[in-house]
């Protein structure tokens, strides 16, 4: 069963956002785009200060994406556990091993 504790943890976790609105959209797009397009960007056109900033923001985007992946897996983990839990409680355990739910 899902305790209120888990629920509270879950909702706080969903709020773990370290990107506080300082990332230009095009940089986000760049971070997501297929590598084969990367040569289209001419980084040399930016100033060193801007480049430094973009490099830091890329690190942040990376971190945020790591966080997102972990959040996704946490949700899946909880869904699996919930499903296992329900079956263990609901039906005869042997039945569950032998046939999937409708």
């Amino acid at each position: 069963p899902v305790t209120s504790n888990v629920l509270r943890a879950e909702s706080t976790v969903e709020n773990l956002n370290i990107i506080h609105g300082e990332t230009p959209e095009w940089l986000r797009l760049y971070s997501q785009a297929d590598l084969k397009f990367d040569n289209l960007l001419e980084w040399g056109l930016f100033s060193e200060g801007d480049l430094q900033k973009y490099s830091e923001l890329m690190l942040k985007l990376h971190k945020q994406e790591v966080i997102n992946v972990v959040i996704q897996y946490e949700r899946l983990r909880k869904a699996i556990l919930r499903e296992i839990d329900q079956r263990a409680q609901g039906n005869h355990p042997l039945m569950n091993l032998m046939q999937p739910h409708p």
């Binding site: 990367d38 040399g44 973009y54 690190l59």
Partner: peptide, 10 residues
């Protein structure tokens, strides 16, 4: 791979 070109440019 994404950060390397930026670091290279720097």
């Amino acid at each position: 791979n994404k950060r390397q070109p930026i670091l290279d440019a720097i």
